[in-house]
Amino acid sequence: MTKSFGDHEVLRGIDLVVAPSEVICLIGASGSGKSTLLRCVNLLEPVTSGSVWLGGQEITAPAIDPDLVRRHIGIVFQSYNLFPHMTVLKNITLGPVKALRVPHAQAEGDALALLARFGLADRAGDYPDRLSGGQQQRVAMIRALAMSPRLMLLDEVTSALDPELVAEVLDVIRELAQAGMTMLIATHEMTFARDVASRVAFLADGEIVEEAPPSELFENPRDERTRRFLRRITDAGRL
């Protein structure tokens, strides 16, 4: 798959397979195209060439309705993007009720169960601006999960958080990984990637330069560009 914005070729040729229940961590410098790749996968951005497949179906095919595809793919953004005019509960039930046509009572029951599972049961009636960043990001995760997605895309979900709030969000992701959720995660948290990833993919120059299980990629990077990137991260004290 490739993606250009005008003349600017951001993704030159991405070839990536995510197997069910796999957790792939996508690492790479800022501006390397991690967000663009995730947005192409759930069709928020149209791909320039190539295709994206979900469970044996080509979702980039012209006959496919992107709105139907997006119901099956959850995405969580760096800046949470909760709906500020809705309570936490409404944020979570909006998708199921409007897109999946789940009855209201059932959607609320499911949402409350998810909130309880991730320790936010008492926040259901609050508006997002009453919550800490970590709580908002957990609600954003729950909002995506409420759609029962087949794939979760996480775009640097801890980058906007104060350091002491990062752990609570990473714990949610860990729990999802253990529960067998298939995830594609763009992240700068190398320790975390080493911990939960089935494989780590390093993105540079519009390509996946190197892709390997975390132990291998972090201990024995083969490509010079990977080595240089990891050295910079180590110097910054992030690994």
Partner: peptide, 16 residues
């Protein structure tokens, strides 16, 4: 625009 992205990523149509 991020609000639109968030809404569309939940499968909501443009009018929704």
């Amino acid at each position: 625009l991020a609000q639109v992205s968030a809404a569309r990523s939940l499968g909501l149509t443009q009018p929704q």
